[in-house]
Design a protein around this nucleic acid. Structure first.
Lengths: 321, 321
DNA sequence: AACCATCGTGCACGAACGTGCACCGCCGCC
DNA sequence: GGCGGCGGTGCACGTTCGTGCACGATGGTT
């Protein structure tokens, strides 16, 4: 009843662009109520506002990225002087819109966790997809107490947006001993989650950068100690995708720590349908490059600045090497 | 450059909901300019506002229609007391939004012509689909001069919205002699259009009602003379789809005039991918029923009132019969 | 029955927005 | 070089919108 009026009001307002006064007349309520109805319509996801990137800017960068890495690139135009957090916000909003467009009833949506995915989650508007499932891709419980809650909240907030069932993955980001992981991987409770993960139709993840100015969530939340960080550096690791570490050339198999990591490897990711990688920031460029070379993504969402840096980085490398 | 600013302004306004004042600050222009940029973004289709029908109302009607006819039903909630023209506008806007969502690069879009399709065209916002084609499904030139222009304008305005190539169908709605049609159908120029029509991925059409209060475009524009109208009535014809006449039970093959009609028959329509039928109004109910029974549509867009009438009509019929 | 909590609604005011008008820089033309 | 048209911009004004507040209805509790 109420939702219905909200729909009607929103339709008249956004599609017909009538003034709220007029709408109030037809609906037989006061103008303020109409204002509230329309606000409600927005909040409840009845109204969906999407922006199409104008063909001009970014299109060129997008094509080059697409050609180079065999992906769909979504390059968001942003003011040059905008701060990285602003740019992340913008990109996250666009990514949220794209994901909303892509999600369908019955889909299995896999999500990693981290600053980027959190930002996207914040901008998701409700858009129910009947029978869909949101599954956490990599473990997140850390040695402190907060971890489970953090990733758990993230997964369930995303699940709420799509009105789908959340599946948490109650394991640490990294085991201390590879044998523990192997043991756990034989447990039925874990196998159930792993089975859902393998059915993911739409995976959503960022990339973590080892050498970030604003250190990525993974690296400063107590998941890794100093010795491990040193080991990674010595191994020429530049970042991670779903807490699996990568080098700039896209290799990862012989990185020791990965045997103890809980996220899907690039190899495993590649069996999934659509893999959406979202990344913003100069610091992430090497890690992003590694990720793209490991072919973890089918879609990349980034901003102009990062896209440009990525291509420049690639160019410099090819000149030097 | 300008489009780009429009995009940025629209992004900040609609996604971040910043005030225009703030946006003016970041963009370094006056607030008025921002207002104009955002208006431009809307007009140029950079901003796309879509409404999701709330699960409550109409969903039930939608499900029943879906179950009964094996289609996807999109039932638009509208005030009961709204006039039929208002309801058509509403539905046309929703249909325009849906079509915009569905159109992809490289698609072949087939359109009929008539009041309904015209209304939809009026509400299409630009959304370029690279390499797409819009093809006219049925002839429109009438015995007077205006016909070609009318349908031609319609087709090209739709083509403009999708930035695609228009293909006109330069034949009358009905030939006077079936032999002429057969002769024309052997002409290469016509065969080319027919070939495009067969590749249609998304067909868009209304239904014409023979007994309309507001007579459908087809029936009062001089396409048919009194004798022909009488013939149709005697034949229990209730309306048409793409100028092919149907009875309420969905039969059409033995309607004599159809041998002279230029639109695709239901049988031919059924070979196409997505067929979107849009219809509003009590008068259209029998014709719509015939169309659905002839399985011409995969998707139906209508309003609550028409949907309800349709189901009631069906029910009365089953009780009576 | 009286009371209170809660919710929804309308009113009123300040903030935000759209647009006619005047101005300015640019360009082509005389 | 002066001049007039023109696209674009900012200013100012009237309109439209968001929201705190108070009021009345409703339903549950003592």
């Amino acid at each position: 009843m109420r939702e219905d009026d909200a729909y009607r009001a929103a339709a008249m307002y956004y599609l017909q662009d009538q003034t709220m006064e007029v709408i109030a007349g037809t609906l037989g309520v006061s103008r303020s109520t109409v204002s509230r109805l329309i606000k409600a319509a927005r909040d409840e996801g009845i109204v969906r506002i999407a922006l199409r990137r104008p063909s001009g800017t970014g299109a060129d960068l997008g094509h080059r990225l697409a050609a180079t890495f065999g992906i769909m690139a979504h390059v968001v135009p942003v003011r040059e002087r905008a701060s990285e957090v602003q740019r992340l916000e913008q990109v996250a909003m666009v990514a949220a819109g794209l994901v909303t467009d892509w999600v369908q009833a019955g889909m299995v949506i896999g999500v990693a966790w981290g600053t980027t995915v959190t930002a996207i989650a914040r901008h998701l508007t409700p858009s129910p997809a009947r029978g869909s499932v949101v599954v956490q891709l990599n473990g997140a419980a850390n040695t402190f107490a907060g971890g489970v809650t953090y990733a758990g909240d993230l997964v369930s907030s995303i699940a709420t947006a799509f009105d789908s069932t959340p599946h948490l993955f109650p394991v640490p980001a990294f085991f201390d001993f590879a044998e523990t992981k192997e043991a756990m991987w034989r447990e039925r409770s874990i196998r159930r989650v792993l089975a859902v993960q393998r059915r993911v139709d739409l995976a959503l993840f960022g990339v973590g950068a080892l050498a970030a100015d604003v250190p990525s969530h993974v690296y400063n939340a107590g998941y890794l100690d100093d010795a491990e960080m040193a080991e990674l550096a010595a191994d020429r690791v530049v970042g991670d995708v779903c807490t699996v570490f990568l080098r700039e050339d896209g290799t990862y198999r012989d990185v020791a720590i990965n045997a103890r990591a809980t996220g899907p490897t690039p190899h495993e990711l590649r069996t999934l349908g659509r893999r959406v990688c979202v990344a913003v920031g100069a610091a992430k460029v090497p890690a992003l490059l590694g990720a793209l070379r490991a072919r973890v993504a089918t879609d990349l969402v980034t901003d102009e600045a990062t896209a440009r840096l990525l291509l420049e980085h690639l160019h410099r490398e090819s000149v030097a090497g």
